[in-house]
């Protein structure tokens, strides 16, 4: 896997989205978003959010929608 952090985070987000892809679309988006919010450190969420805001290259549709809806990251 790439060690480039954006590519790696995209890969990880897509993995999560794929794991939930058997669910109905909306449920899969919510499950993916909840998983990222629950387990990813703020700097990772900030980076993936920025990546999605810049077009979200490489993100699957479920992952992109999930990341777009992530709550803003609070400062430390």
């Amino acid at each position: 896997m790439s060690h480039n952090s954006d590519e790696k985070l995209v890969y990880m987000a897509n993995q999560i989205a794929t794991a939930f892809a058997q669910q109905k679309h909306d449920a899969a988006v919510v499950a993916t978003r909840t998983h990222i919010a629950k387990f990813w450190d703020p700097r990772m969420r900030a980076k993936i959010t920025a990546h999605a805001a810049a077009g979200g290259a490489g993100l699957s549709p479920i992952a992109k929608e999930a990341v777009d809806g992530l709550p803003p990251v609070k400062a430390a």
């Binding site: 629950k38 387990f39 990813w40 450190d41 700097r43 990772m44 990251v73």
Partner: peptide
């Protein structure tokens, strides 16, 4: 906020 996991 959750922290970093080891690979992270």
């Amino acid at each position: 906020e959750p922290g970093l996991r080891i690979p992270n």
